[in-house]
């Protein structure tokens, strides 16, 4: 199979993922799961046949890595949803998986766009995918944190919301740690050392520390407002780590800035 067949197989997969997202938000959980898995199956068939016909793992171009994002996001998103049946989790995974498929459909020029040698690693795709799941969960945590903050200001925090909040932070932080650790393992293989205090790495540490502060401050009910506010600050730090580091004066010479 080649990119030509992708034009016929990707649209049905995208359609199924959209159906899944729409269904889960309307409470049609069974349908949502079935549609997501069907989309995943169509996509898997394409990637497997593509791999076979290429005679090598499809991991060398931008377009090829986008395939794996779609595949992993829908797969990992499904597993995470099975464990934590939050509708938005499934919807997010399905929609983001479809975004990467659509990018491949609309921008065929990235199909052959070179991937620099350091990026050609087995750690690359899992590293990026777990971070995307972490972003989703921690983004939701920040929003829910703001809601709780408002309740708190009006008098009474909602214990149910706290339970939800802590849970989502623990799960999101788990994914964040997996991203950090796979990054370290990858750095060891590609650059000779697992941690070099590169700006991107340093910012990842700052972000992780902010979530650690939340996790540990929640163990004692002191300063609840500050604790909740931390979730917004931490999300901001996460965004800087992801998008902003390249613009910082400290990033000149960073090995992890890919223009």
């Amino acid at each position: 199979m080649t990119w030509t067949e992708f034009n016929y197989l990707a649209p049905p997969a995208v359609g199924l993922w959209w159906l899944s997202a729409a269904a889960v938000m309307r409470g049609r959980r069974r349908l949502a799961e079935a549609a997501l898995l069907a989309g995943l199956a169509v996509f898997t068939v394409f990637v497997a046949a593509f791999w076979r016909d290429l005679g090598r793992p499809p991991m060398r171009t931008m377009g090829e890595t986008r395939l794996w994002y779609s595949l992993f996001l829908s797969g990992a998103g499904y597993l995470a949803y099975r464990r934590w049946p939050y509708p938005w989790l499934l919807a997010f995974s399905a929609l983001l998986a479809s975004v990467f498929a659509i990018i491949n459909l609309l921008k065929p020029e990235i199909h052959s766009q070179a991937l620099m040698p350091a990026l050609q690693s087995v750690y690359f795709i899992p590293h990026v995918t777990v971070y995307m799941l972490a972003y989703a969960l921690l983004g939701v945590a920040a929003m829910a944190g703001l809601v709780q903050l408002r309740r708190l200001k009006r008098g009474q925090a909602d214990p149910e919301l706290y339970a939800f909040l802590d849970n989502v932070v623990y799960v999101g932080f788990g994914f964040l740690m997996l991203g950090l650790l796979s990054g370290a393992a990858w750095a060891k293989e590609a650059w000779g050392h697992y941690w070099s205090w590169d700006p991107k790495e340093t910012w990842a540490l700052v972000t992780a520390s902010a979530y650690l502060l939340y996790i540990h401050m929640r163990l004692k009910d002191i300063r609840p407002r500050l604790t909740l506010g931390l979730l917004s600050l931490a999300l901001l730090l996460l965004m800087i780590t992801w998008l902003g580091v390249s613009y910082l004066p400290s990033a000149q010479g960073s090995v992890h800035v890919y223009s």
Partner: peptide, 13 residues
């Protein structure tokens, strides 16, 4: 730590 992260994902709080 990776096992711990998986534990956090599985157990939540």
């Amino acid at each position: 730590l990776a096992a711990g992260a998986l534990g956090l994902i599985w157990q939540g709080r």
